[in-house]
Write a protein that binds this DNA or RNA. Sequence first.
DNA 1: CATGGACAACTGCTATAGCAGATGGCATGC
DNA 2: GCATGCCATCTGCTATAGCAGTTGTCCATG
Lengths: 228, 228
Amino acid sequence: MAAAPPLPPLPPAENLSLAEGAYRRLRDAIVRGELPAGTKISERGLAPKLGISAQPVREALRRLEADGMVLTQPRSGTMVAEFGPARLAEMGRIRMALEGSAAALAAERADAALLAALEAQLTRMRAATAAEDTQTLAEANEHFHALIHHAAGNAFLLRSLTALRGYDHVNRLRALESTPKELPKALAEHEALARAIRQQNPELAEERMRAHVLRSLRAGGLLQQDKK
Amino acid sequence: MAAAPPLPPLPPAENLSLAEGAYRRLRDAIVRGELPAGTKISERGLAPKLGISAQPVREALRRLEADGMVLTQPRSGTMVAEFGPARLAEMGRIRMALEGSAAALAAERADAALLAALEAQLTRMRAATAAEDTQTLAEANEHFHALIHHAAGNAFLLRSLTALRGYDHVNRLRALESTPKELPKALAEHEALARAIRQQNPELAEERMRAHVLRSLRAGGLLQQDKK
DNA sequence: CATGGACAACTGCTATAGCAGATGGCATGC
DNA sequence: GCATGCCATCTGCTATAGCAGTTGTCCATG
């Protein structure tokens, strides 16, 4: 068994089945607004546009329905759901809850490898924060959270969090770039969170993660300030 | 438009497509232990046993995979995942988080119909608690939570909570029956929760729901007492 | 002109056939 | 005897065809 690479593989390789590819393409198209809310879509209609059969398209649509991105009534048709600011706020709330659970579970089963990987990302973050390198910071942030998601070791949780990622990957960048003065706060929160995980304190880790995501959402303008 | 029935239809009718039916049957079979962990299952193998084609079976297996109940690696095979007490505890944690989110969202958009429906279930609960009628109590409890899930108005959240229900529908009964002295506590929590929803306080509703689910999990022996 | 009903064109859903990749046993060579 | 490579078999995955509902349009009728 050879030594692990410096950056442990999160999902080491992409399988890219046709259904998976269709799912991602459609998801991105919806998020980017290329398929506006209310657009009628159908398995047969999308199949030739994606260059595949109708069957994988159907599978992709079922997943998108589970994610809440499309609405389909049984024998009639499928349309992309509308998610305005209100819905994005809802998804943000849910993400806060699930990220908190992931942090708690990760704290329970934290091992040396996880702690080292988290520390590596923190090091990147410290440098990027000092340099206000938002690009690198966004990447490190993604890795940091992804590490926790995987460390939680729960398939359902991982799947759910991955689905939620589609909703705010745009707003995440905006949140980081629009308010550079928030960057030190985020860094401090990440460090405090890593500490809670290191001392294997699930409740503390959950609470800190929730606070971190909540502030992040507020910085992105997705949640009101009247929450306490 | 006729007047609504006294118990507003949660899911008014069951569509029961073949894929949906296969999903439920397989899910129940796994939960009941008829398909022990590690059992190898395949689309083609299950199709004749369910009396349907392999295609709906596949769809059901994909959903079960999303729920974390089966593990499938791409070209090799599918097996039912093992969920011992540790995994059930994880799912309990996640359920606590998602139930909290649902309560918060339900509090945000609470209307007269919801409050009336919740009050109706509370009335049932009060009587059932006094009579220690655990059967009726379990039903009212299910309805109460289902009302909140639907009132949250979020497809993704509803789907996730429905998936989680499969994990603890056994332990839920046990929790209620094994500790009758806990019943008044649960009733008081439900009433306090309804109050928070009535005054449209999302944070309070979320916190109370989390506490309620947490105590319920502990009563069922799914979580340790060292949590605070 | 308004209205109802049948028909054509959709839709999601299911069945069947066949694909490529993975698995395990068995024969072959060392 | 042990390792090695081949091949039958089984797997998930995809393509195609056809089913049964739904919907909208157009013509016939009051």
